[in-house]
Simulated scan of single mutants.
Amino acid sequence: MSWRARLERHANRLWYETQTPGLAYRALERLYRRFAKQRFHRPSGRPPVPVIVVGNLCVGGAGKTPTVIALARRLAARYRVAIISRGYGGHSDNYPLAVGPETAIAEAGDEALLIAREAGVPVWVDPERSRALQAAIEDSAAEVVISDDGLQHQALARSFEICLFDGHRGLGNGHLLPAGPLRQPRSRLASVDLLLVKGAGFSLPGAEHFELEAIGFRDLDGSLTEPLEAWRGREVDAVCGIANPEGFADTLERLGLKVRLHAFPDHHRFLARDFAGLDRPVITTAKDAVRIEAGMLGLPLRVLEVLAALPESVYQRIESHIEEFA
């Protein structure tokens, strides 16, 4: 196991299984609060067009990328939509970078590349999100911009904020980094426009709930191959490098598969040796699939396709905001 994998496992145990972190962690939490407090409030700037930020208060996966894709698909039916992202894990000498389906993952990063392939709208990445926003408006003529993450990005003006939570993990132990998973204090939620919780088990006043619905398996090339029912009862190797690998395994088990989980660090760049010794069909996530090259393994590989089944009330609130923006 790599040092990154060990560090992530330790952090998840500390944040989600330990109610009271040790004294050393709480001392580091106080330092974090002192030096990061300027990022604990909502930026006051007003963007030139509606900017919808989809982000997290907690470190870890909560269905953010599928939510961004679902929102873009819905809004694109009425508006010219573009998506902006930091492009985590990628690096380019030419920012802001327009990301298309064939952009190199080394430039775009895995999440931005997946969004570009799935959302059907222009995608711009730049570590300085304000420059990506300007490119989306000027070069893509965007009437509405969705920011993939960026809740804590103080330089990005926004008009509507969505904060996501995982229903199983909730707020974890409730502490700030590094003692807990919170990037900002819970009080930050008072200035967020919409709270979204993926799944059951955790709730907040006024929060909307949604599910990630599995719709089928596909090949790496993107074509859906087999219905979910065809895999019920089969033994598989679940391979992923995401923030919440147990959630992926739980999804497969609810579909009736017998799962052996192989978890790698978040945003892991896969190599052929990562699949050595596997003797079952391999199932991975859409985000991981963009980091797996065809021919890496000699076993059947399928990608689990999911969509964010957002309540109609969520779309209505966002569309009302866009119409009222002036």
Results as ranks from 00 to 15, higher is better:
Gln134Thr: 15
Val197Trp: 02
Gly109His: 09
Ala62Trp: 01
Glu229Cys: 06
Gln184Lys: 14
Val121Asn: 11
Glu253Cys: 08
Phe264Thr: 02
Glu102Arg: 07
Glu253Lys: 13
Ile322Trp: 02
Gly206Phe: 02
Ala238Thr: 02
Arg186Pro: 01
Gln19Lys: 13
Arg42Phe: 00
Gly277Phe: 10
Leu196Cys: 06
Pro66Tyr: 04
Pro21Cys: 13
Val259Leu: 13
Pro127His: 13
Val239Ser: 03
Leu114Pro: 03
Leu57Asn: 06
Trp231Phe: 15
Lys198Tyr: 03
Leu297Val: 15
Tyr16Leu: 10
Leu14Ser: 12
Ala289Tyr: 01
Ser313Arg: 15
Glu246Val: 05
Leu224Trp: 03
Cys58Tyr: 00
Leu177Gly: 11
Glu293Ala: 14
Thr103Leu: 05
Gly201Tyr: 08
Gly172Cys: 07
Val51Ser: 06
Leu113Gly: 08
Gly172Lys: 08
Phe264Asn: 02
Trp231Tyr: 14
Val303Glu: 03
Glu235Gln: 13
Pro205Tyr: 04
Arg26Ser: 06
Asp266Lys: 12
Val236Ala: 11
Glu319Arg: 12
Ala132Gly: 14
Thr284Pro: 07
Arg78Gln: 15
Leu204His: 09
Trp15Asn: 04
Val144Ala: 08
Gly199Gln: 02
Gly180Pro: 06
Tyr315Thr: 01
Arg46Ser: 08
Trp3Ala: 12
Arg186Cys: 08
Glu8Gly: 13
Leu57Lys: 14
Val303Ile: 14
Ile322Asn: 06
Glu293His: 13
Glu118Pro: 03
Thr251Met: 09
Arg33Tyr: 07
Ala200Lys: 09
Lys287Gly: 03
His168Val: 11
Glu323Phe: 09
Arg30Gly: 12
Tyr16Cys: 11
His91Arg: 15
Phe325Thr: 10
Tyr95Val: 02
Leu7Met: 14
His321Leu: 00
Ser313Leu: 06
Gly247Asn: 08
Ile162Thr: 02
Ser320Trp: 00
His268Trp: 14
Gly295Asn: 10
Leu252Ser: 12
Leu156Ile: 09
Ala119Glu: 01
Gly174Cys: 11
Val53Ile: 02
Pro48Ala: 10
Ala230Thr: 12
Val314His: 02
Glu128Thr: 10
Gly241Asp: 03
Ser140Leu: 01
Val49Lys: 07
Ala142Met: 04
Arg232Tyr: 00
Gly90Asp: 08
His10Trp: 15
Glu235Ser: 15
Tyr315Met: 09
Ala136Asn: 09
Phe210Arg: 00
Gln316Cys: 06
Pro245Cys: 06
Asp221Ser: 13
Ala135Leu: 11
Leu71Gln: 01
Ala70Glu: 03
Asn94Gln: 14
Arg169Ser: 10
Tyr16Ile: 12
Leu257His: 10
Lys287Asn: 04
Gly199Cys: 05
Phe40Glu: 05
Ala230Pro: 01
Gln38Ala: 15
Asn56Glu: 07
Phe160Lys: 02
Leu57Ser: 10
Phe275Cys: 12
Leu176Val: 12
